[in-house]
């Protein structure tokens, strides 16, 4: 009964959520520095979207091992824009207000171009974001080039980062070399996005 009510109150993720090969939905979100950031302002560059939640053990696996930060740094050094997005709803116990989210990213030595808050979940739903982490790459023409997991080892064990295939790193290497993405849609894993 509870499940039925939940289904009635919240529609499932849209049938027409972003699809690889189709235009990536635009959004306008507040950064933790109180700036309005739109995806479309980065037209002409590759953009990585990283769904994040500091309280999720799968996110902590990638940040605790510095895996995510290393990829952020390497990507932004190649003129790729990196947007970290937190779609946790205000009122959820894991919600982080802007100052707290900014402090955590700083503590982690994150190298995102901007950290965005999506407490209404509009951007998350438009992309069909299901997990933290959930990763997307938008190409310079605004087309979605990758959607899926950060890597191929579903676990909370930081040791697995060493031997996992990092799908995002591989996809960026392929795209920046002018090649097609070999694994354009993969399985994301993590905690549920807390809409």
């Amino acid at each position: 009964m509870k499940q039925l009510l939940a289904l009635m109150l919240f529609a499932a993720l849209p049938a027409h959520a972003a699809t690889v090969g189709a235009p990536a939905p635009d959004f306008a979100l507040q950064s933790v520095a109180a700036a309005t950031v739109k995806l479309s302002q980065y037209r002409g560059k590759y953009v990585v979207l990283e769904w994040v939640n500091p309280e999720c053990p799968y996110v902590r696996k990638h940040y605790g091992s510095a895996n995510m930060q290393r990829l952020q740094k390497d990507s932004t050094a190649r003129d790729v824009v990196w947007l970290s997005i937190n779609s946790t709803r205000a009122g959820h116990s894991e919600y982080k207000p802007p100052a707290e989210m900014a402090a955590w990213m700083k503590q982690m030595n994150a190298a995102a171009s901007a950290t965005l808050l999506d407490p209404k979940g509009d951007a998350g739903r438009a992309y069909g974001a299901r997990t933290t982490p959930h990763m997307y790459i938008v190409d310079p023409k605004g087309v979605l080039a990758y959607a899926g997991g950060i890597d191929d080892k579903r676990s909370t064990d930081p040791e697995d980062v060493k031997t996992a295939k990092n799908f995002v790193r591989v996809a960026l290497d392929e795209l920046l070399a002018g090649n097609p993405v070999s694994s354009a849609t993969t399985a994301p894993y993590g905690c549920s996005v807390k809409y």
Partner: peptide, 10 residues
């Protein structure tokens, strides 16, 4: 069981 949580299900 199907466990709904917002727009997601497990």
């Amino acid at each position: 069981q199907r466990l709904s949580i917002g727009p997601l299900a497990n």
